[in-house]
Design a protein around this nucleic acid. Structure first.
Lengths: 348, 348
DNA sequence: CGGCTGGATGTAAACGATTACATTTTTGGT
DNA sequence: ACCAAAAATGTAATCGTTTACATCCAGCCG
């Protein structure tokens, strides 16, 4: 593959001049520049980003470490991240880190020299206690627990969102409200459970361990939990699932059992993935502007990168929004929205 | 940030020895190695991948250029790609390339020196005609049109899958079968349309331009197209949507209009995203093992990378599978599957 | 005409690793 | 105890860029 030297030789100039043409770092006589560009095209020359970043110490790439890559949530998250990064001229290096401190550390280390900063979502591990990761590598935590003040983070107002939804269920008359929890040990899951309990407490309803069922954020998990709930007596009259996938699974189970929604059972989810409005009945949910969440995280990271010295730690919490549809009764049908993708920064 | 020199100095050895410890390229006395590793931890040293790949000429990274990142299809595709790449010790550098030859070329160029090969999905542009991209950079085309034999590619058996589904609709008695097409200019979309027409032809049914509605692979697009179909008279009795998202949108529109599925209208989609089975009624679809598609593409790319000299071009076509559920009538309810993710290589 | 200015270009030292080759140390057989 | 072979380690060139600094040359002014 052609290098800068080949181009320099062929165009009878020094490598410095070629470099200047491609990096735009200094002015080159127009005629010379044109000649160099012509030669470059002939030789199919492209600057080698690796070599370049070795000396400039910048890669224009952001590392993205996610616990998983599966499902609408991550799809939309990556979308938001990519769009924002790209707008600022950055690429993204995506990696899935399986659970476990060691694996995360390992993944972080392998990012050394490849990225200018890392977006880390590690809902199970206190990420601010990571050891033996490259020093000076800016990191922004996404939906992850963090003890100290020492790290940037962007999270969702999980507890508040859950609380609002459950409070709504109470307000329309429900007293036996079950929750299908998220994965054990998961940060968001714990927060949402907390919000659920808050709401019950606010409403003067005692919490009941039997109404708190285990789930794992998958449709199948929601389906299974819903079957358990069906067997209970007295049966709850409403279910709050800690995410939409589980709500969808639950919906499916209830329907199969001939339970009418929302007459016999109200269902609500969390995240408000696009599909909610296409379910039958359309699913009430707590909207999280997922793409904006990713976008916000990139903003913070980019700030940390470009203002390495005077960057003050930020701790953002994205607001949620209650979206009531027919699955919880009461509201009229909603028309599907225009299909354009909302890129506006809405919250915090 | 600590470099290999710092470690060498601190451990009183040469950089070569340190390098050998970290690259595992040669054997180092156990005692020396231990000392070096200790120093490395103290100094929080991590090898600089950029520098490393400059001399080894390998980045252990695959570039992934997709037309979009939105929705379940891409979610699952990236998942499959990441998993397979990771198993072989590769990272993935994801980028969304907007439409247009120039932008793709630009994106390809920016990959120079960052990746060992590229997975390119460009359903609108004949990718084998790209100019001015780094020479010698292995590329595998994903679901993209390609003229010559000069390039590796992995595609879906779109036409055959669509044909089978429409043939099935005919076999259960439908004669007025509409199609909601995919995005104009899209490769998969064109192929699926072709399959639809084949099937009609096989069944001795004349094609009718009014029954071929425009779509764009989104739920909203399917919703809109379905509304148009509702207004037709005579109204078709079955709709084949070129992907599941549109089928879901259409389903929603029909339901809103009080049309019974499948009694008044049969619906089928394409892709068989996980959600199909959770819809009401569960959606018939043409299953594409999307994750396997990504996995297969990675396999081909990896082969091209590691056997640069004696790699013979491959042109794979992933088989599809007809999945009949209640939305087309006939079949009994299906239980949700176990939630494990299918990683087996199934087709070709 | 000579000296100065400033724009265009060239020279060469980094950046942080790997690795062929050279050198030193260890090992083991006698 | 000695020597050859093997093992461990060191030296230095190299990968493809950027960039501080040096150089060159044309034009301008006095």
């Amino acid at each position: 593959m052609a290098t800068i030297k080949d181009v320099a030789r062929e165009a009878s100039v020094s490598v410095a001049t070629v470099s200047r043409v491609f990096s735009g770092a200094a002015v080159v006589r127009e005629e010379t520049a044109r000649r160099i560009r012509e030669v470059a095209v002939t030789l199919r020359y492209t600057p080698h980003s690796g070599a370049r970043s070795l000396i400039t110490n910048r890669t224009n790439t952001l590392g993205v470490l996610l616990p998983d890559l599966y499902g609408e949530f991550f799809s939309e998250l990556i979308h938001g991240i990519d769009l924002t990064a790209r707008n600022s001229g950055y690429h993204i290096l995506v990696s899935r880190s399986w659970e476990g401190r060691t694996e995360i550390e390992e993944a972080m280390r392998s990012m050394r020299g490849r990225v200018d900063g890392v977006l880390l979502m590690s809902p199970d591990v206190h990420a601010d206690t990571l050891l033996n990761v490259p020093a000076n590598l800016p990191v922004v935590l996404l939906c992850s627990p963090a003890r100290g003040q020492e790290v940037d983070s962007v999270t969702i107002q999980n507890s508040r969102g859950a609380r609002e939804m459950v409070t709504h269920l109470i307000s329309i008359g429900h007293r036996q409200i079950a929750i299908i929890k998220g994965s054990a040990g998961n940060f968001d899951a714990a927060e949402r459970l907390r919000g659920y309990r808050y709401a019950l407490h606010d409403g003067g309803i005692a919490t009941n361990p039997d109404l708190e069922r285990d789930g794992d954020f998958t449709e199948a998990g929601g389906y299974a939990a819903a079957q358990d709930l069906l067997a209970m007596k007295p049966r709850p009259t409403a279910v709050f699932a800690a995410n939409d996938s589980m709500a969808i699974g639950a919906l499916s189970a209830f329907r199969q059992a001939g339970v009418r929604i929302p007459e016999d059972m109200a269902i609500a989810g969390f995240d408000d993935i696009p599909l909610c409005r296409y379910m039958d009945p359309p699913l009430s949910s707590v909207r999280v502007h997922i793409a904006d969440l990713g976008a916000k995280a990139v903003d913070v990271l980019l700030h940390a990168i470009t203002h390495k010295n005077d960057h003050v730690r930020r701790r953002e919490r994205m607001a949620t929004e209650l979206v009531i549809r027919r699955s919880t009764g009461g509201e009229p049908a909603e028309r599907p929205p225009p299909k354009t993708f909302n890129r506006g920064m809405t919250s915090v």
